[in-house]
Amino acid sequence: MSAKHAQRRRHWLAMFGLLPLLQACSPLRLINAVVPDGSHTLLEGLAYGDQDRQQLDVYLPKPPVSGAPMAVFFYGGSWNSGNRADYKFVGEALASQGIVTVVADYRLSPEVRYPVFLQDSAQAVKRVLADANGWGVSPERIFLMGHSAGAYNAAMLALDPRWLGGAGVAREKIAGWIGLAGPYDFLPIKVPAVKEAFNWPGTPADSQPLFHAQRPDPAAPARTLLMAARKDELVNPERNTVGLAQALTARGQDVEVALLDGVGHASLIGAMAAPLRGLAPVLEQVRQFIEKRPS
């Protein structure tokens, strides 16, 4: 996209108030209102447990794709907010690229504390793995993905064997994982909501993805894509995204890193929506990563 085109798009977004909406981490209902419906079939409210928030939505590409990859997506919200319906734009974006996409709810603070949201996330993965073949998914092309707090969830499932293992899922079933603007190294905790979610100051060191990335573990998924806004003012990209990438690379993992201009912490994920894709090539890089075959 040319600089002139990008400037026009930003002007259009500013006129309709969408950039402030994204920067404030709003529910993104305005974006979802213009999400196309013809690209996918929605399987809504599939249960993976008996609690209200133990449900997920599945976006199947239309027309169906045989041997499709699958991405299990966890949203952010400081582990105390969020709803799967707010991320229709993510499900639609990935389904439009031929990727079966799962958007999962999980229980939140203050109802629960760490590590319950990780246990819920692992149970969601177990649930969709049981049905993946019927959705046309290739068992060798299953990925975890998340934004912000959800990227933390994905990271911990990928790097710490306790969570998928506790759900009876072998990590070898996960081909790779994608983290967007994730907090991977955030001790000591300073944000009040996060303190509550992680029982600070009693938060264990092994609650951090970086802790696990620094330990040799050949069972972890071999491929990782880490993306963040270069000027993320909420989650420091150098400490978290770059720091985790360096640790994984040092232990021989295949890691791709991208720090993007033109977006912030929230608009990074917003850029996956059809009206906002000109802000940054988030969807394109995720698609390329998922479609890349291991060498």
Rank of each mutant, 00 (worst) to 15 (best):
G182N: 08
G165P: 13
P209V: 03
W200A: 10
I174V: 13
R223Q: 03
D185W: 12
S121Y: 01
W177L: 08
F198G: 12
N199V: 09
W163D: 10
A155S: 13
D131T: 13
M227F: 01
D232R: 01
T203P: 01
Y152A: 04
R162G: 15
Q208Y: 03
V125K: 14
I174K: 10
G179N: 07
P139F: 05
N133H: 10
A197K: 11
T203M: 03
D232A: 02
R141K: 11
L210H: 12
S121Q: 02
A193P: 05
A193G: 11
G150T: 07
A229H: 01
H147R: 11
P221N: 01
A124R: 10
S207D: 01
G176F: 13
E140K: 08
A229V: 02
V137F: 09
L157Y: 15
L225Y: 10
Y184R: 13
P139H: 04
A175H: 02
P110E: 03
V103Q: 09
A170E: 12
F143W: 05
A219K: 14
R215H: 15
P221Y: 04
P139W: 09
V169P: 14
P139K: 05
A122R: 06
V116D: 15
L157G: 12
L159Q: 14
T224F: 02
K173D: 03
K173W: 04
K231Q: 03
D217L: 08
F186I: 00
W163K: 14
I178T: 10
I189D: 01
V112N: 04
R113D: 00
G168W: 01
V191Q: 12
A193M: 02
L164Y: 12
L157H: 14
E172V: 10
I178P: 03
P188K: 07
A229M: 06
A124G: 08
R141M: 05
A104H: 14
G150A: 06
P115S: 12
V103E: 05
Q119E: 07
P201Q: 06
G150C: 00
S148W: 01
R162A: 13
A228E: 05
L187D: 10
D185H: 15
P161M: 00
R223V: 07
G146F: 05
L210W: 06
E111V: 15
A130Y: 06
P209L: 05
V103K: 10
N153T: 13
L234F: 09
A175M: 00
G202V: 12
D232C: 02
H212F: 15
V103H: 03
A130L: 09
P188T: 03
A228I: 00
L108V: 13
L225R: 04
L164V: 15
N133S: 14
F198K: 11
G136Y: 11
Y184L: 11
V235G: 06
R215T: 15
G136H: 08
A122N: 03
A205I: 11
W200S: 14
E196C: 00
A181D: 09
V116A: 14
I142G: 12
A104L: 04
E111W: 14
M156V: 09
Q119R: 01
P204F: 02
L157R: 15
G166W: 06
P221I: 04
I142K: 02
A155I: 05
A155E: 04
N153C: 14
K231H: 08
V128F: 06
M156S: 06
L144S: 12
P201E: 02
P221C: 00
D160S: 14
P216S: 07
P192S: 07
P209I: 07
G168C: 05
